[in-house]
Simulated scan of single mutants.
Amino acid sequence: MELKTAKRWFNWHKWTSLICTIFLLYLCLTGLPLIFHEEIEHLLEDQKEVIARDQQKLDLDHLAKIAESKYPGEKVRYAFWDENDKNKVLFDVVDKPDAPYEKSKYLVLNEYTGEVLGAPKTDGLMGIILKLHTDMFLGIPGKLFLGLMGILFMISIISGIVLYGPIMKKFDFGMVRKNKSKRLKWLDTHNLLGIAITAWMVVVGFTGIINTLSDVILGLWQQGQLAEMTAPYKNQKPLTGNFSSLEEAKKSAENTIKDMKVSVIAFPGTPFTSKHHYAVFMRGNTELTAKLLKPVLIDAKNGKVTDTRDMPWYVNTLFLSEPLHFGNYGGMVLKIIWTVFDVFTILVLITGLYLWIARRKAERQWKPLSKKALS
């Protein structure tokens, strides 16, 4: 590599790394507990045993009324089922369908008995850490800013790979010059750790960038596929209540797609459907397909299925990116691997910051000596 080209790549690596290092350290530190968020939430929340006392689950409309009775004057807008929490349903209750999520009241009910099992602590420790990690409590601007830091991180990785190749032509791969100066030892350690976990950093960095675009992706889906699916209802008056049966909507979706399970039901007027439809989102039964959703739109006036389609590729990319970003695919083994690589990334960032400070210090010391030598 020519000296001029090498210097250009070095400057790209130095400045992109410097700009994003503090924020990447912040993301690595907040990301560590999120790898184990399910296990931590299980320890922090009060767990009530769910016993199926009857063979038949209660009607979903009845369960929704129980949830609404806890907040008079307000209505259910979403129903959620978690594949890991059997025999439970989570309701989101609000005063109006388009209310901000900060206004949501969540209730978990036993599907067999109707017993209220409590509410998830969205403002608890893990909820706070998640907000810090995803948008720094700044909403969409915070997400997009962290996405920009992710792009700089990817540029620093690519430039680091370009620089590392020519260096290793002169030395043994993975060498650490322990008998040389402290700065050289840290430089070799930084290079070795960085190249060893490059693939992981690319995966986590790229999926992190995709996750910061979740609101953009939702907007594209709303204006694209969702608008096409609801186009026949575009000029009709919005439904204002007296919706068809929620239970029947769930059964219709299950009968339409028999090899999938219900994951979420969105009520008319919410961002994930139209003002005329229930949107029943189905998920698969395997480790991979359980991360993907397929919408079934049901006319909330007569309960008939009007359309169902596979999600566009860009939405499926988002669905697959979020669990991969946190290592939530292969159980505890993958989570431990993600933790080890996260710690190594922290070391790479710290050593990189140390090398920059040490280089600056050395330059300040050499400048006066250079002037004396020239005078």
Rank of each mutant, 00 (worst) to 15 (best):
L29A: 07
L29R: 02
L29Q: 09
L29H: 09
T30F: 06
T30W: 08
T30K: 08
G31M: 07
G31Y: 00
G31Q: 05
G31F: 03
G31H: 00
G31K: 06
L32Q: 01
L32H: 04
L32V: 11
L32D: 08
L32F: 12
L32N: 03
L32I: 13
L32W: 07
P33Y: 04
P33V: 11
P33R: 15
P33I: 10
P33D: 10
P33H: 08
L34E: 05
L34V: 08
I35F: 06
I35G: 09
I35A: 12
F36I: 14
F36L: 13
F36R: 12
F36H: 14
H37F: 15
H37E: 14
H37I: 10
E38I: 12
E38A: 14
E38N: 14
E38V: 10
E38F: 14
E38P: 04
E39D: 12
E39P: 10
E39C: 13
E39Q: 15
E39L: 11
I40A: 11
I40E: 11
I40L: 15
I40V: 13
E41Y: 05
E41N: 15
E41H: 05
E41G: 02
E41K: 14
E41A: 10
H42Y: 08
H42P: 00
H42N: 11
H42F: 14
H42R: 13
H42E: 12
H42K: 15
H42W: 10
L43C: 05
L43D: 09
L43H: 12
L43K: 15
L43Y: 14
L43T: 05
L44M: 14
L44A: 10
L44N: 09
L44C: 07
L44E: 14
L44F: 10
E45I: 01
E45T: 09
E45N: 12
E45Q: 11
D46K: 15
D46E: 13
D46Q: 14
D46F: 12
D46S: 13
Q47I: 06
Q47E: 06
Q47T: 04
Q47F: 01
Q47H: 05
Q47W: 02
Q47M: 05
K48L: 06
K48M: 09
K48R: 06
K48H: 08
E49N: 02
E49D: 01
E49V: 05
E49C: 00
V50S: 03
V50H: 00
V50F: 00
V50T: 03
V50A: 00
I51H: 05
I51F: 07
I51E: 07
I51M: 03
I51W: 04
A52F: 05
A52D: 02
A52K: 13
A52S: 11
A52L: 02
A52T: 01
R53G: 03
R53T: 03
R53E: 09
R53H: 10
R53C: 04
R53N: 08
R53W: 08
R53S: 07
D54S: 08
D54N: 09
D54E: 02
D54I: 00
D54K: 09
Q55G: 12
Q55A: 13
Q55P: 00
Q55D: 04
Q55M: 02
Q55W: 01
Q55R: 06
Q56L: 04
Q56A: 09
Q56C: 04
Q56V: 07
Q56D: 11
Q56P: 11
K57S: 10
K57T: 10
K57Y: 01
K57A: 06
K57H: 03
K57R: 01
L58P: 06
L58C: 01
L58V: 00
L58I: 06
L58F: 01
L58M: 11
L58G: 05
L58Q: 07
